[in-house]
Design a protein around this nucleic acid. Structure first.
Length: 365
RNA sequence: UGGGGCGUCGCCAAGUGGUAAGGCAGCGGGUUUUGAUCCCGCCAUUCGGAGGUUCGAAUCCUUCCGCCCCAG
C-alpha cells in the first residue's frame, strides 16, 4: 500500500515548512513545489532567490524533493494586468485574492495534479471541511485567519486541498519549527503583494502607470493641497497627503474620503472617524460562493470589507448576474471599491465579491 | 520715507524675564500575504538679523530686514 501523494506549495516560510512536516507525520508521500511568479526584479526588493534557498534547505531537512516552477506569464496576465487596470480606474484592487484563485489554486494546482498529487497543500491559516461539497472554514488562529484571501478559490480545487496548519496557532507553528530545527524557524512573516513582496508602493506603481498630479480639496471644496496622482491614494488613507497645519482648520489629521476622477481631485476630510468616511452598505459584483451556488434568498451573515477586520453583522440581498447589496447593522469605515467583501456564517466562509460602490453615507459629501 | 500689526521646527501654534507645549506633515520601526488603518519612536541648544539691559530674555530696549493691514 503506497502512501498518498501530496504536493505542498513551499514558499520558504515557516508556515508551509511546518505544513509539509505535518503531512509527513500523517504518512503522506510529500513533495514540495516552489513557485516564483515575479520576474522583473531590478530593484532588489524581490526575495524569491532567498526564499527558494530557504525552501530547499527545509526540504533537505525534511528529506522531501522540491520542484520549482514559474507561472510568471500567467501571473502577469491573470493577476497583474487586472491589478493595473483597477488602479487605472481609480480603484483599489486586492491582487492576492486573484492570485489564490488564478495561480495558487488555479494553474499551480493543476500543475501539481499533473505531477501526480492526490492532494495539494499550502501553509494557509484556514480549514477545509471535506464532504460532498467542501466547506471553507476560518483558521483557528483568529489573528492569522486567511480565509478572506481564499474565499474565491475554485471549489474543485478546494475539494482536493489540505491546510495542515489551519487548526494551529501561529505561536504553535513557530514553536514546532524551532523544535524541528527548521532553518526558517525564526524567519519573519512575509508581507506585501504575494510573489512581489513589500516595496515602496508609490514608486512601484509609478513604474507601471503614468501619474497625473492634481488638487486635494476638502469636502467643502477648499483646496488644501496637491496629490501626486489619484492612484496613489485609497479611501480612509492618512499617510502621504502632506497636508500641514492650517489656520482655517482644526488640528486633526486628514483622510481620503473620495476621488473625483472627472476633475482629478482627491477629496479629504479631517478626523479618523469623520462621518463622510462611513457608509451603511455597499454593492458588490463578481460574486463567488464556496458552495458553488448562490444563496436562493436574502440572508443575514457577517462580513469583512478588508482583511483582518472584525466581522460585521449585515443583511445580504442577492441580485441577478452575480451581484448583491449588503446592508450593515452599523456604518462601516472606508468601504473601498475594488476591495472584496467576504461573507461568513460563524466559522464558515461563504464567499464574497468585489465592492463596486458604497452607499448610505450618513452625511454625504 | 504716515499710522497700526506681525515675524517661534516644512505648516498651524503655545509661551510676555527663568532657561522652547502641542498638533499636522515628514522620517524610522512594529502590526499585516492587497492597498489602507492602527501602534511606537525620532523630529527647533533655538525663537527674522545685529547689538544692548539683566545673574538669566523667544519674552525688555535700540536698530536693521521682511511681511500684513489702514492711508481717509
Amino acid at each position: 500500500m503506497s502512501a498518498i501523494p501530496v504536493i505542498v506549495g513551499m514558499s520558504g516560510g515557516v508556515d508551509s515548512s511546518v505544513a509539509a512536516w505535518l503531512l509527513l507525520q500523517h504518512g503522506y508521500d510529500v513533495q514540495g513545489l516552489f513557485m516564483s511568479n515575479w520576474d522583473e526584479d531590478e530593484d532588489g526588493y524581490c526575495t524569491a532567490a532567498e526564499d527558494y534557498q530557504d525552501a530547499r534547505s527545509v526540504c533537505e531537512r525534511l528529506d522531501v524533493p522540491l520542484h520549482k516552477v514559474s507561472f510568471a506569464g500567467e501571473y502577469r496576465e491573470r493577476v497583474f494586468a487586472y491589478f493595473l487596470d483597477e488602479y487605472r480606474a481609480g480603484r483599489t484592487p486586492n491582487p492576492d485574492v486573484l492570485c489564490n484563485r488564478e495561480i495558487k489554486f488555479g494553474v499551480c494546482f493543476d500543475y501539481a495534479r499533473r505531477l501526480g498529487a492526490e492532494w495539494v497543500a499550502t501553509g494557509h491559516y484556514a480549514r477545509v471541511e471535506h464532504g460532498p461539497t467542501p466547506r471553507l472554514l476560518r483558521g483557528v488562529d483568529a489573528g492569522k485567519d486567511q480565509s478572506y484571501f481564499l474565499h474565491a478559490m475554485p471549489s474543485q480545487a478546494l475539494a482536493r486541498t489540505l491546510f495542515p496548519i489551519g487548526s494551529l496557532q501561529k505561536a504553535e507553528v513557530r514553536r514546532m519549527a524551532r523544535e524541528l530545527a527548521l532553518p526558517v524557524f525564526d524567519k519573519k512573516d512575509s508581507t506585501g503583494i504575494c510573489f512581489i513582496g513589500e516595496r515602496p508602493f508609490e514608486e512601484f506603481l509609478a513604474h507601471y502607470l503614468p501619474a497625473q498630479p492634481g488638487a486635494i480639496e476638502s469636502a467643502e471644496g477648499r483646496r488644501v493641497g496637491e496629490h501626486r496622482g489619484l492612484m496613489y491614494y485609497t479611501l480612509g488613507q492618512r499617510q502621504g497627503l502632506r497636508i500641514g497645519g492650517r489656520h482655517d482648520a482644526s488640528e486633526d489629521a486628514w483622510y481620503v474620503a473620495g476621488k473625483d476622477l472627472q476633475r482629478n481631485v482627491l477629496v479629504v476630510v479631517q478626523g479618523h472617524d469623520h462621518p463622510a468616511l462611513f457608509s451603511r452598505g455597499l454593492t458588490a459584483s463578481q460574486l463567488t460562493w464556496v458552495s458553488g451556488a448562490a444563496p436562493a434568498a436574502d440572508f443575514r451573515a457577517t462580513a469583512k470589507v478588508r482583511y483582518r477586520q472584525p466581522d460585521q453583522p449585515c443583511l445580504v440581498r442577492v441580485l441577478t448576474s452575480g451581484r448583491c447589496t449588503v446592508e450593515f447593522d452599523s456604518p462601516q469605515r472606508a468601504v473601498t471599491p475594488g476591495q472584496y467583501v467576504v461573507f461568513y456564517r460563524d466559522e464558515e466562509c461563504l464567499g464574497g465579491g468585489v465592492i463596486e460602490a458604497s452607499h448610505g453615507q450618513p452625511q454625504p459629501l
